[in-house]
């Protein structure tokens, strides 16, 4: 099989996974799982159909399984997440707050919001990736946007009092 088209999608998968999980290590592991699974199921991909959407669908299924395994808890220590976000040339405080607020959204809202905002997927593509009706996509997206805006407005500055976050450890 020609792996080049899959490899070309890796940067997008990594960014989405990182925003979704808030943790570089967890995210790359999710990407690795996705890639292995995609190669194993390669025969199920219909040539000519949207490879990117297919890969995101696989990633979503892998992620849902992992969440289920972890009992729905947030997998990331928020202090680690903040540390990962300190990229040079960015506005670290704003981005840290944004990631922190994102992680407070319900997982299914976060997925819809990120697929729309980061990947520019159309509603119908998101419906396929997440295997939900298109109406659910729209209502989740609108709730996610409103909730995120609320969290950002009411959010404390970085280093201030932190919202209660669930930790795995």
């Amino acid at each position: 099989m020609n792996t080049a088209p899959i490899v070309a999608c890796i940067p997008a998968l990594r960014r989405y996974a990182r925003a979704l999980t808030g943790d570089a290590w967890t995210a790359d592991d999710l990407v690795q799982d996705t890639l292995e699974r995609a190669c194993a199921k390669w025969s199920l991909w219909r040539a000519g159909s949207d490879l990117r959407a297919w890969l995101f669908t696989i990633m979503h299924n892998v992620w849902v399984n992992q969440l289920r395994q972890a009992g729905g808890r947030t997998l990331v220590d928020i202090d680690d997440a903040a540390h990962d976000l300190q990229a040079p040339g960015t506005e670290p405080d704003l981005l840290i707050d944004l990631q922190r607020c994102l992680l407070q959204l319900p997982a299914e809202q976060r997925a819809v919001l990120l697929l729309a905002a980061l990947e520019d997927f159309a509603y119908q593509d998101i419906a396929k990736v997440l295997d939900i009706p298109i109406g659910t996509v729209m209502s989740r997206l609108s709730r996610a946007r409103a909730r995120l805006a609320e969290l950002m407005e009411g959010g404390q500055p970085a280093g201030g009092t932190r919202p209660a976050l669930r930790r795995l450890k």
Binding site: R18, A19, A87, T90, E91, L95, L98, Q99, L102
Partner: peptide, 10 residues
């Protein structure tokens, strides 16, 4: 703002 998140990863 969201698109600025982890942009460096790309």
């Amino acid at each position: 703002a969201l698109r600025g998140l982890h942009r460096d990863v790309l």
